[in-house]
Design a protein around this nucleic acid. Sequence first.
DNA 1: TTGTAGGCGTTATCAA
DNA 2: TTGATAACGCCTACAA
Lengths: 335, 335
Amino acid sequence: MGATIKDVARAARVSPATVSRVINDSARVSEDTAIRVREAIERLDYEINDPARTLRTKTSRLIGVIGARLKNPFLMQLLQSAEKAARKENFNLLLGDTGDSLDKKIDYLQIMKQKNIDGIIVIGSNPEGDFLDRLRESEIPAVIASGQVEDSALPGVSIDNEQAGAEVMEYLLELGHRDIGIISGPQYDMMSSSKRLSGALKALSAGGFDLRRENIHSGDYSFASGFRGAQNLLEENSSITALFAFDDRMAVGAIRGIRALGRNVPGDCAVVGFDNIEISRYIHPALTTVHQPCNELGRKAMELLLKIIKGDIDPAGEKRILEHELIIRESTAEL
Amino acid sequence: MGATIKDVARAARVSPATVSRVINDSARVSEDTAIRVREAIERLDYEINDPARTLRTKTSRLIGVIGARLKNPFLMQLLQSAEKAARKENFNLLLGDTGDSLDKKIDYLQIMKQKNIDGIIVIGSNPEGDFLDRLRESEIPAVIASGQVEDSALPGVSIDNEQAGAEVMEYLLELGHRDIGIISGPQYDMMSSSKRLSGALKALSAGGFDLRRENIHSGDYSFASGFRGAQNLLEENSSITALFAFDDRMAVGAIRGIRALGRNVPGDCAVVGFDNIEISRYIHPALTTVHQPCNELGRKAMELLLKIIKGDIDPAGEKRILEHELIIRESTAEL
DNA sequence: TTGTAGGCGTTATCAA
DNA sequence: TTGATAACGCCTACAA
């Protein structure tokens, strides 16, 4: 079916090598022949055979994404920006939803190796298992986006989760809340989640307060877990007056859970989320939350990765911490 | 770096052909040699070179997705199921967010051709421009997921959008609403959107009513456009008592827009959405909406595509219309 | 059951 | 500036 470089060469009365040179403008070709070649390409509807090129050059212009969850709107927004940055340099994204499964991540890593992928964006940086070790062994350039970057050997882009967690608590303390519940992230996101938690705890103890173990509910970033979390926490301890959920979806679920108990938000119980996904300003009450610059996170992570691939930069120690911001809306109020 | 099939062959004291046979278990190989080969593969950490194989076999085990928008939670849920079905048969997804741009779709189509992609899932089936023509010319197996399937030359899986639009209107009529506003989909989703619209209009006129042109606002499936749409419609015509938005995100935006005008939902104005994305049951008031079986849509579309690729099935006329369901929640009430 | 050999389409090297 | 040639790693007749 498809014409090959040889067909084009024949049609343009040049050698295949010359056609290749025109396609890649890799070397000087006289304008005359270049025109003849382009014309032949056009006429024959020639399309380059990418696998053949990859076999020869060892580069696929493919970027793998590991750890993204299609259902997570924050990550999808991040990914959209990452893709845009990739497309600008003619790279494409190979995407797998690995869910929370370590095995799947490792499977994808293998697939990506086999496909001669040029680089990998890791979403979140859960150190669990030996995924990160295998990644390092593979020697494929990789960058963490929106995970915990500080203690990792990999370069990455993120925010200061600990600081953000602390700010939320300071804010709630300022409003007069003393008995605060937390709906944390799941196991597989240990890093971001645990940093937010430790920040929150530090802020509490700095204010002279502490948090009872029972005031923490471990969620999984789903609406349902936010709903359940809020109900469990309030049923266990009805004097809780504020809830801090580690992502906006859980916060939305929590608001509904609180309402279902016959209480009001923020009147009876304030709620703070995390991420500032688009919907958080549209729900009622509009959600107080921590804004993460997700477009910038995606773009910077991809730009960093592409630079590393090009060899423009030394991966070691390339870490960027971007600014977050507490956005105060309607779901919190003075006690 | 990486070991090749030849290295494995040497280590196992067999020919490269035999190694290939073991890898693909394509022909009888004696158990003894097979074991030796597998052991050598293990020892050398051999990974197959996928581009080389693709060059040779013309099959990449890659499925392209065109037309998905990462920010659309309904589509992402659909895609998650599609991916699951693909992975089951060892296919991977090449994903590009083409936004609403026709050019980008055509660009992606070209990239996918070059990558020897095995099949394409088209999200939505906007007939605009010559994308569909080019797709057909390319002769790559393709399936439409969640677009307008009935009048298309391509096989596909969808729901009956016209019927669904009609049901929503019948329901609102039953509740006593007479002056109803519509926030429709955008140009690029002409097909689903226009079917929903024509269904709605038919139901109205069947009931002896009609819809003024000014009662239709053309949105773009964003929260913001739902917000604006609701405000424009109600400011133009303050006697509107119900709004039908063609997707849940616009419905959520519309609810906020109505509230910002000082009116209540559903007391002063009822709202109906479309898709039944996860959040719609968690917001307040919980959204009345049309449920689309998005997991089934994604899975069936992929299964259909894989069957076509395998040649098990004749693509022509393969159309599946799945069941939808009107889910009544809190955002609608009797007038 | 196993091996030999040729070719998939491209690019890189070397020579002209 | 251009061309001939070999090689990337794999699969598949065909032959043994």
